[in-house]
Amino acid sequence: MNLHFLQKYLPDGGLFFIVKWLKPYACTIKITHSRRSKLGDFRYRLNGPHQISINGDLEAQLFFFVLTHEIAHLISFAAKKKILPHGKEWKCCYRDLLLESLSIYQKDFQTLVKNFSKNPKASYNAASEIVRYFSPHVPEHFFIEDLHIGHFFEYQRQTFQILKIRKKRYICKNINSGKEYLFNTCVQVRKLTCNDRE
Rank of each mutant, 00 (worst) to 15 (best):
L62C: 05
L62Y: 00
F63N: 01
F63W: 01
F64M: 13
F65E: 02
F65R: 05
L67R: 05
T68Q: 13
T68P: 03
H69S: 15
H69N: 13
H69R: 06
H69G: 10
E70G: 12
I71M: 08
L74R: 06
S76P: 01
F77Q: 15
F77H: 15
A78V: 08
A78H: 06
A79V: 03
K80S: 11
K80Y: 08
K81Q: 06
K82H: 11
H86Q: 05
H86D: 08
G87D: 06
K88T: 07
K88Q: 04
W90K: 13
W90H: 12
W90G: 13
K91N: 10
K91T: 05
C92V: 07
Y94I: 07
Y94P: 08
Y94L: 03
Y94M: 14
D96A: 13
D96T: 13
D96N: 11
L98V: 00
L99E: 09
L99T: 01
L99W: 01
E100G: 03
S101W: 00
S101Y: 00
S101C: 03
L102N: 00
L102Y: 02
S103I: 06
S103G: 09
S103E: 07
S103T: 09
S103C: 11
S103L: 07
I104F: 00
I104W: 01
Y105F: 15
Y105M: 10
Y105W: 07
K107Y: 01
K107L: 02
K107G: 05
D108L: 02
D108C: 05
D108Y: 08
F109R: 10
Q110M: 12
T111E: 15
T111Q: 10
K114N: 06
K114F: 10
N115G: 05
F116Y: 15
S117T: 11
S117M: 15
N119T: 09
N119V: 05
K121D: 05
S123E: 11
Y124C: 15
A126E: 04
A126H: 13
A127V: 15
A127T: 14
S128K: 06
S128H: 07
I130C: 07
I130M: 13
I130S: 03
I130N: 03
I130T: 06
I130V: 14
R132K: 02
R132F: 01
R132D: 00
